[in-house]
Nucleic acid binder design. Structure first.
Lengths: 351, 351
DNA sequence: ACAATACCTTAAATCGGTTCAAATTCATGG
DNA sequence: CCATGAATTTGAACCGATTTAAGGTATTGT
């Protein structure tokens, strides 16, 4: 077995309390003793048992991060941000994937509570799901930060400002002279899609573009949803849109594929804008213009906020909601010059 | 504060030992008592403190996963696989990013050891780094699995069989009738690059293609490294290769960009094959043929192996090395028909 | 030389579980 | 009704740290 504090104490000829004092460099222990104990700790490569420590201190130095699927670049970048901040604070991050399944989300939260993590960052399931487990967290004053709104629950939140992002994207298309601008929605459950729709509409309104209901098509989050939507645009009677704003990048790529297959050129005939900028856009031959989510920053800020909440024991503050700015990443699919895309901002760092 | 086992015991009018028995459904506790205690546990929503449990049992139910950068699709998919298996086993996964920095790798491992994680899965820094911290793990018989070899350390390992993957890719190019096949290496530190080079050479040899040293170019892991390499191919005196096998997908995309900019068509003039299949390839207009790493499976198998190691306390088995098969993912960049790529195998699930 | 003070160190309780030998209760048969 | 053994339950030690009141030593002032 590993050394314990008692072993060190015995070797050093002091009490466990003194060794503990050394470890947490309490000012009461004399320099002489401290040095001696420290030397012994080093010599025997003693590593305090954080589990025992956690039990005594009633805090674990662990936080839980629950996302839908860590292999999604958006979430993995958030995770990177979270881990970055937590690492600096000496916290470790436990990751759980809900796989968009309610049971798993609940199971993860329950397990993490049993593990007494100091706090949670959760990207929750949305619309329509039973959210009592989240409501419970609030009731128990368990520190947590959400990465997406849950209707009916007021809680600390960090997310991108979708509406403004969508507004900017749409406005950009309008400024480019596009008149028939479509929007392909995300899955019904995604509140973000509604917000993006709102931003899109606001931009149309501001610039007196008459909104055409036929240009708003129900989509999804996958490439094939976009492809499908593209087909729909093509097959309907009205004239095809000359610009499409999409729920996310995958959808954008799908719709482009549908267009290109039918001889419709991007960006000449139709401009396309995606959302997220989750890794792919920069790699396309015709770089994808997209609304970049500040994913890493979302991770960082949510972690920072969580740390605050953890520090503020028994806080009575009202929940804070943080909306981070998106950034319109302009590439070729809405008419940037080719040159612009060669300078890739963020490359994937493959092993 | 949360309920403790003592509270439950008092309410149920039994001893803590009995409640403990109920929790771990020991056969010695009577059904009657068990039901009664269970009802109380449920009523008061009691959640046993896993920290206290970990202290008593000397096992935490935690495992550590150290990768270079979780936002890299390859690693995040590995993480997904790890979490999947661990979830089924009731283990939680702590993630640490080393950011390719030795200090961070060491710091993470040390912290995780203090946290008494039951085991570690590590994608270590390679060539040239001080690896004493890994050697120590072995000396201490701490259960761990590596995801990349470390010269001089025999340890449990799970990785893709790069050499065979590279061999297959190269052979595929040869079978396509390509004669002047190039290879763009990865960073010097990557052992995987050497293995891929070996596989490439083996394929050339088998098919009596005379290897040309000029066709092997030093690259890297980023798009711009590939772009650079592409330029080199173009500017050198020999005739340009008619096929290029690349260290990874980013490099492949970079080299393609360099070619296309100079009017060289892919795949007509030059075929390109990447490595990893880390998310991007399927999204390109001309889908990238690539050697797909079984990333999820690497995660799963390494976790399974780690669980074995944890179970086998004091094992004396020799380390097992598992080499998982790659899969040549054929898309357009080496001449597949367009149709093939539209059916995307794995889409990104953007929120 | 002695009291007062400052400075260190320690013993013992505590955190919330598990474990197991010993004690208690229960059921069975003579 | 009691002995016997099986079935349950329990008390107390333990896991490895922190904490704090109390005890011990050294230092200072008079």
């Amino acid at each position: 077995m590993a050394m314990t504090i008692a072993d060190i104490a015995k070797i050093a000829g002091v009490s466990r309390a003194t060794v503990s004092g050394v470890l947490n460099n309490s000012p009461t222990v004399s320099v002489k003793t401290k040095d001696r104990v420290l030397a012994i700790i080093k010599k025997y490569d003693y590593r305090p048992n954080e589990i025992a420590r956690a039990l005594a201190l009633n805090q674990t130095g662990l936080i839980g991060l629950i996302v839908k699927d860590i292999s999604n670049p958006l979430y993995s970048e958030i995770a990177l941000g979270v881990e970055d901040v937590c690492g600096q604070e000496g916290l470790s991050v436990i990751i759980g994937n809900s796989h968009k399944e309610w049971d798993r989300e609940v199971a993860h939260i329950n397990l993490l509570k049993r593990r007494r993590v100091d706090g949670l960052i959760i990207f929750p399931l949305q619309k329509g799901a039973d959210v009592r487990h989240i409501a419970d967290l609030k009731k128990e004053k368990y520190p947590f930060v959400l990465l997406a709104e849950i209707p009916g629950i007021e809680a600390d939140l960090v997310r991108a400002d979708d509406k403004v992002g969508a507004f900017q994207a749409t406005e950009h298309l309008i400024n480019l002279g596009r008149k028939r601008i479509g929007y392909i929605t995300g899955p019904q459950s995604a509140l973000a899609s509604d917000r993006r729709l709102a931003g899109y509409r606001k931009a149309l309104k501001k610039h007196d573009v008459i909104p055409n209901k036929e240009y708003v098509i129900r989509g999804g989050w996958r490439l094939k949803d976009g492809y499908q939507a593209g087909k729909e645009f093509l097959s309907c009677k009205m004239s095809c849109p000359d610009a499409v704003f999409c729920y996310n990048d995958s959808v954008a790529i799908g719709v482009m594929r549908a267009f290109v297959e039918n001889g419709i050129r991007v960006p000449q005939d139709v401009a396309v804008v995606g959302f997220d900028d989750a890794g792919v856009g920069a790699y396309l031959e015709t770089g994808l213009t997209t609304v970049a989510q500040p994913a890493m920053e979302i991770g960082r800020r949510s972690a920072i906020r969580l740390v605050e909440l953890i520090r503020l024991k028994n806080n009575t503050q009202r929940p804070k909601k943080l909306f981070l700015q998106t950034k319109l990443q302009i590439r070729e699919t809405c008419g940037a010059n080719k040159k612009g895309s060669v300078s890739v901002q963020k490359q994937m760092n493959n092993s």
